[in-house]
Nucleic acid binder design. Sequence first.
DNA 1: TTAGTGACTGTAG
DNA 2: GCTACAGCCACTA
Length: 105
Amino acid sequence: MEKSFFERVFDVTRKIPIGKVTSYGAIAKHIGSPQSARMVGWALNKSEILDPPIPAHRVVNRNGLLTGKIHFANRNTMVELLKSEGISIKDNQVVNFEGHFWQPE
DNA sequence: TTAGTGACTGTAG
DNA sequence: GCTACAGCCACTA
């Protein structure tokens, strides 16, 4: 039994270290479908109903832009969480994105 | 069962 | 440099 695409996304996302961020594309690539980054976002959307919750706030698009924050109940939640982990956010974007970037394995 | 949708990305104009 | 379009796969109605 292999894990579904869905579960792999969570598996990778959970491995993101504190203070680090990654992109949908990086996760999708790790799973094996670089062009299915949309699926990653879709999966993360479902993640909030899971237990335990997935650190979806550490996943941003390839520009370091917090596009996913619009799906949080409060649009400041994602920013605040990242800031509390030592990541600076400016204008919905990760400051020094490449410096904080983390890639699975 | 078929059709529609999605937290993206890369290429082309 | 910016805008537009197509592709990708899994899930829900």
